[in-house]
Computed example of a mutant assay.
Amino acid sequence: MPLAFLNAKSSIFNGANPFEVSDYVRANVGSHSLSLSSRSQGSASLSHRKAGGLDLCRLSYGARARVISEGLADIYHLQFILRGYCRYTLPHTTLDLSAGHFLLLNPDDPLDITYSEDCEKFIVKLPATMLGDACAEHRWTRSRERITFKQVPYRFQELESLIVLLQLICEEAESALTTPQMLQHYNRVVTTKLMTMLEHNLGLEEPCEHAPCFERLVQYINDNIKQDISAEQLSHFSRLSLRSLYLLFEKNAKTTPKQFIRQKKLEHVHATLTNPASKAPNVTAVALEYGFTHLGRFSELYRSTFGMLPSEAMKSRLSS
């Protein structure tokens, strides 16, 4: 049974000039140059659909074609050969793959791909940030190096669950009833499947103490608690995208980075106000020291957190 990767609703070109198709692919799927065998001008076809952060593409040049790329920048390509064959000349190996094979191409690797005249492929363009989000969500250890998948081909039979999922995503992407939230959910499942099914350079164990994980972020916040700390600063420090950062805080603290920082500041203020050894002259000075410039709002936050006004906390310290 043929694989149901995109139907006529997603057709962009049919029986077209391969170079017109190549221009479209270059703009939407990945930078490259195309050359054809002089014996044929080809009759190309292309279907394309966006599905959340993914681009889905079914492609045939209808001629013996050569595609060269200096690299895919910050995207990965999932390539499923549906018909014909492809030769992949990669930095460290050359692979001749026939229909029924899958290969994942890493960002930045130079590519030299030769298509047979009857070759048809289904390609999924996956932004690198989505894999970073998956690592943050599952708390997988990630080094500063880019996630790199081993350049080994897989048979479709080895990836049945992934293929079923991608066919479902194609169907949902073409449906008028699908919501963006549904597609984003499917995106997350795809990235998780890739990380758990394919070979790569990442360990899937829980992060160690040296990883840019939640514990290190908490320490960074405590070390800079009197500063105005933003989510962008935490993102830069942890080398996580903002989305990954928010997922990490939601998983570990059930709150946002901003609310977590505010709570930590309140705890430090409370510790200062109730510490008998503290030299703080008054509540205002302590509040301003920790960045609370709106004193009325600060008092409300303090009372809702600790069940008393900050002035009452300070009085209890002085009376003791």
Score class of each variant (00 low, 15 high):
Asp133Leu: 12
Tyr220Leu: 15
Ser43Ala: 07
Arg66Thr: 09
Ala4His: 14
Phe149Pro: 02
Gln79Leu: 14
Thr293Ile: 03
Ala231Cys: 09
Asp108Met: 13
Asp133Glu: 14
Asp108Asn: 12
Leu204Gln: 12
Tyr302His: 00
Leu168Ser: 13
Arg262Ile: 10
Asn252Ala: 04
Arg303Gln: 08
Thr305Gln: 09
Glu174Val: 09
Gly203Thr: 14
Ala27His: 09
Thr178Gln: 00
Gly15Lys: 01
Arg239Asn: 15
Thr191Leu: 10
His270Asp: 05
Pro281Ile: 00
Asn275Gln: 12
Phe292Gln: 01
Phe19Gly: 08
Ser47Arg: 08
Met314Gln: 10
Gly84Cys: 06
Ser10Ala: 15
Thr293Pro: 04
Asn7Gln: 14
Ala173Met: 08
Ser175His: 00
Met1Glu: 13
His200Ser: 14
Gln157Val: 11
Leu59Asp: 06
Gly84Ala: 08
Thr196Tyr: 06
Ser45Cys: 03
Val283Asn: 00
Asn201Pro: 05
Met314Phe: 04
Val124Cys: 07
Tyr302Gln: 02
Gln184Pro: 00
Ile147Asn: 01
Arg216Pro: 09
Thr178Pro: 02
Ala211Arg: 11
Thr293Ser: 05
His92Gly: 08
Leu194His: 01
Pro153Tyr: 05
Ser311Cys: 06
Gln227Ala: 15
Cys213Pro: 02
Tyr220Ala: 14
Gly100Thr: 12
Lys315Ser: 05
Gly62Arg: 04
Ile81Tyr: 06
Ala73Asp: 15
Pro207Lys: 07
Ala211Asp: 15
Ala65Ile: 06
Gln167Ser: 09
Ser116Pro: 03
Ser22Tyr: 01
His48Trp: 10
Asp74Glu: 15
Thr272Glu: 14
Glu174Lys: 06
Ile81Glu: 01
Pro18Ala: 02
Thr256Met: 08
Gln181Gly: 02
Phe214Lys: 13
Phe5Arg: 11
Asp223Thr: 15
Pro2Ser: 11
Ser143His: 07
Pro310Asn: 01
Leu97Met: 00
Val25Met: 07
Tyr61His: 10
Tyr186Asp: 11
Ala134Tyr: 00
His101Thr: 15
Ser35Glu: 13
Pro276Trp: 11
Ser230Gln: 12
Gly52Asp: 04
Thr129Phe: 03
Leu95Asp: 04
Leu90Glu: 10
Ser311Met: 01
Leu103Lys: 05
Lys121Pro: 03
Thr196Met: 10
Glu70Phe: 08
Ser35Trp: 00
Glu267His: 13
Glu199Tyr: 02
Ser175Asn: 11
Pro91Ile: 02
Arg262Glu: 15
Ser316Trp: 03
Ser69Lys: 05
Ser38Thr: 11
Ala173Glu: 04
Ala16Asp: 13
Tyr220Ile: 11
Gly307Val: 05
Leu273Pro: 05
Ser244Ala: 15
Val218Phe: 01
Ala16Lys: 11
Leu162Lys: 08
Leu245Gln: 11
Tyr186Lys: 05
Phe249Gly: 12
Gln219Ala: 14
Glu215Cys: 14
Ala231Glu: 14
Cys119Asp: 07
Ser47Met: 06
His270Ser: 13
Ala134Arg: 05
Lys315Thr: 07
Ser175Leu: 10
Ile221Gln: 09
Ser238Val: 08
Ile221Leu: 09
Glu20Ala: 14
Arg216Cys: 13
Ala287Tyr: 01
Leu6Thr: 11
Arg216Ser: 13
Ser235Trp: 04
Ile81Met: 04
His200Val: 07
Gly291Met: 06
Ile68Thr: 12
